[in-house]
């Protein structure tokens, strides 16, 4: 089966999923799709440009805030575009500041930038409602139906995921990989490293913003926790759990973390412990992530088969 055919089969299977699930589980699946998009947008930077950001929760949440706030004044599709635009602008600003650093400095700088957004949302009470957040009124008409929203998110997610896939496979994406491996060599070859990274940062921010806009539809409520550090960390963890540099592994990572939290918390209030232990176990057994590990196992089978 070609890659395109298996991707089509995957999307079809996901599209049929709501028929097998209760309304509540369709909601959970919607959340998984949205967070998979966030994790993928992080993977574009972390897995393909070698820059691990800790501010994508803030970019994601900024879009959510803008959508919910502006939807009171303008039609919903425009509000969502405004949210994505705001995320893009924020990513541009962050990118200008951060792209000339790398490694742990990039990590810390993006962390600090994300915290500024959180601080603004917490303190700018007149606009953001402070700690109490903003209540939306977006789930009206056909959007109130859990399945309809799921299909909308799936359709948008498929387009966005395909765009990200195209991006990382394009000559631009290959240049990013070159920068990941050796920035100095790419510079010597005549590539403008900072500009490539800035473009990648903005693209990644736009994708995170799109996920945030969809989250506004799903959650219909936003508060500073949506832009807080744990959100960025969770997105990164999903990308890592799925497999950094696999892009679509993010879906597996999101499904694992959200599913685990939901089902374990039904059984024990010690669910954060279980989640933590799972993360540790995963890092020991499959540091390349779920999809990365699966790919490695299949790859080694194929190669041993070849030797025989």
């Amino acid at each position: 089966m070609t890659a395109a055919a298996s991707a089509a089969a995957g999307v079809l299977a996901l599209a049929l999923l709501p028929f097998a699930l209760s309304a509540f589980h369709v909601g959970v699946a919607t959340e998984i799709l949205i967070f998979a998009l966030l994790a993928m947008s992080i993977d574009v930077l972390a897995g393909f440009a070698g820059r691990t950001p800790l501010c994508h929760g803030a970019i994601f949440g900024t879009s959510t805030y803008v959508v919910i706030l502006s939807a009171h004044a303008i039609p919903l599709p425009l509000a969502m575009l405004a949210g994505i635009g705001a995320a893009g602008l924020l990513a541009l600003l962050f990118g200008v500041i951060a792209v000339r650093t790398s490694g742990v400095y990039f990590l810390l700088l993006t962390l600090a930038l994300g915290l500024i957004v959180w601080g603004v949302c917490l303190r700018w009470t007149a606009v953001t409602g402070g700690e109490n957040g903003v209540r939306g009124d977006l789930r009206q008409g056909w959007l109130a139906d859990a399945r309809a929203l799921y299909w909308l998110v799936l359709a948008a997610g498929t387009v966005l995921a395909a765009a990200m896939w195209r991006l990382v496979r394009s000559p631009f994406g290959l240049t990013l990989r070159g920068i990941k491996d050796s920035p100095t060599r790419m510079q010597a070859l005549g590539h403008d490293v900072a500009r490539h990274l800035l473009l990648a940062f903005v693209a990644s921010g736009l994708f995170a913003g799109a996920a945030g806009a969809l989250y506004a539809l799903y959650n219909d409520f936003v508060s500073p926790t949506t832009v807080a550090l744990p959100q960025s960390v969770e997105g990164l963890l999903m990308a890592i759990a799925g497999g950094v540099g696999t892009l679509f592994g993010a879906l597996a990572g999101a499904a694992l973390l959200i599913g685990l939290e939901l089902f374990v918390s039904a059984w024990t209030e010690r669910w954060p412990t279980v989640l933590g232990l799972t993360a540790i176990l995963l890092m020991i057994v499959a540091p390349e992530g779920l999809v990365g590990k699966a790919g490695a196992i299949m790859g080694s089978r194929r190669s041993t088969g070849g030797i025989r």
């Binding site: 309304a23 909601g27 700690e131 957040g133 209540r135 219909d220 409520f221 939901l262 039904a266």
Partner: peptide
């Protein structure tokens, strides 16, 4: 998320509780 589970899956007749204002406002919405 937990309010959704209680209402849509456990089919509770009504909800009670929460402590922090922002959790209560989210569920109220």
């Amino acid at each position: 998320q937990k309010a959704r589970r209680l209402v849509e899956q456990a089919n509770v007749h009504f909800l009670f509780g929460n402590l922090l204002a922002n959790t209560g406002l989210a569920v109220a919405n």
